[in-house]
Simulated scan of single mutants.
Amino acid sequence: MAASLYLVAGKATDAVTHGFLPAAARLGLDTTLLTDRPAAHAGTHGGPVVECDVTDFREIIAAIGGEPAAIFSNSDFLQAPAALAAAYFGLPAKDWRAAARAKNKALMRRHLASLDPVFSADAHQVPADAPYPLVLKPREGVASEDVFLVQNAVELATRRDEIAAHRDDPLVAEEYLPGRLHTLETLGDGRELRVLGSFRTTLSPPPFFVEERLEWTAPPPETPQILEQLEALGVGFGACHTEFVVHEGRARIIEVNYRLIGDHCDFLLADLLGVPLFEEILNVHLGGPLQSWRTPDRRHAIAEPVIADRSGKLTAAPGPLQMDDGPVRLAYRPQRSVGDTVAVTRTNRDYLGTVRAIGPEADEVNAALARFRAAHDWTIA
């Protein structure tokens, strides 16, 4: 009898639809999808889809029948409830406290205060002597949504009111951390935490924080500082995507996303490593050890989103593509479909799709990427 995997999901994502569900099938798992949005997953999964309130670990537990082999989620919002449900069944899982710290930016700053003190306050209780500029953001936000750099108390109040007009969850105001932005991609099995690699991230001009380009690079020399902070948070199991800055020899965490990197960089990472990454992640949740694999040959890689520059209807755009341009392998996966209405938000939600390019040298990769973008049209009417 096949082992049972319960995959806990909210909205439908490419990581789940094209990554983890096919990986579970290749592993021969009997997979049940638990979600509060079953319509969004219609047609993406050939097995059972069970509707339940996946934000509540008690509802996840109640929806599980028999003896599960693993309970897994790749959602930012669902790490803690999935971890609590897994703990109930005695299954390998992330520490739910670490998942809560990673998701809640105020808890994260409080927990790391002895290692890396960063000014952080409830956005409605910022003192007059706060160290402006500050970054205003939802306490448990994602995708750079409603994240703004504010220079003074007047800007803070103005942006806070703008956000309050369409959402009512808590906001925090944090000290702006200067430096070069990097990511750290890790995978742990509870015994070993392995660094998979790092991307160098290019952001849009302030006051917004849209990720415009991610470039594969060696982890910076300051990476051990980040690993120490992750250990303090209790992060060490499964996949984790950490964003941090390096400035004058000091590495400081921006945020911890206790799941696999998104926006199609997950597929790029799997291609770069040359390993079945989605299966590897599921394997540790099944109780297996990290597998050994060879460090990939020196290669250059870029993930570059195509970003909407205006609101309107998407009338022309390529579909999924894979092609070679000399020694460079290119792939494109859309995030919006022709006919979709696009509203520019100045966040990562403005992505129309992402181009991934892997090649031996930076110049070749950049040139192939430029040719690909010039040869295709993305039209917003």
Results as ranks from 00 to 15, higher is better:
Y6H: 09
H18E: 10
L21E: 06
P22V: 01
A23C: 11
A24V: 06
R26K: 14
R37E: 05
A39G: 09
A39E: 13
A39N: 10
G43K: 01
G43T: 06
V49P: 00
V49I: 14
E51F: 02
C52R: 07
C52M: 12
E59L: 03
A62R: 09
A63W: 03
I64K: 02
G65C: 06
E67D: 06
P68F: 00
A69W: 01
D76C: 09
A80N: 01
A85K: 02
A85Y: 01
A86M: 01
G90S: 00
L91P: 02
P92Q: 03
P92G: 02
K94T: 06
K94C: 10
W96N: 02
A98E: 01
R101V: 02
M108A: 09
R109Y: 07
A113W: 11
D116T: 12
A123E: 07
D129Q: 13
K137T: 07
E140C: 12
G141L: 10
S144V: 09
E145Y: 10
F148I: 12
E155I: 11
A157Q: 15
R160S: 14
D161R: 15
E162L: 12
H166G: 10
R167T: 13
P170K: 05
V172I: 13
A173W: 04
Y176H: 12
H182Q: 08
T183W: 08
T183H: 11
L184M: 07
L187F: 03
G190A: 03
E192L: 13
R194F: 04
S198Q: 12
P206E: 15
F209V: 11
V210R: 04
R213F: 13
E215C: 15
P220Q: 10
L227A: 06
A232C: 08
G236A: 04
H241T: 05
E243D: 08
V246W: 07
E248K: 15
G249F: 14
R250L: 12
I253N: 03
E255K: 08
V256W: 03
D263G: 04
D263L: 06
H264T: 11
H264K: 12
H264N: 13
D266C: 04
D271T: 08
V275F: 01
P276E: 09
F278Q: 01
F278M: 03
F278V: 00
E279Q: 15
N283R: 15
G287S: 07
Q291M: 11
R294V: 06
D297P: 13
A301G: 15
A303M: 09
A303C: 14
I307N: 06
K313M: 13
L314N: 05
A317C: 08
P318T: 04
G319S: 08
M323W: 06
D324R: 13
P327W: 04
V328T: 13
R329F: 10
Q335S: 11
V338N: 07
V344G: 08
V344E: 12
N348R: 05
N348G: 05
R349N: 13
L352R: 02
A357M: 14
P360N: 14
N366H: 15
A367E: 14
A367G: 10
A370G: 09
R371S: 09
R373K: 11
T379E: 15
I380G: 07
A381R: 13
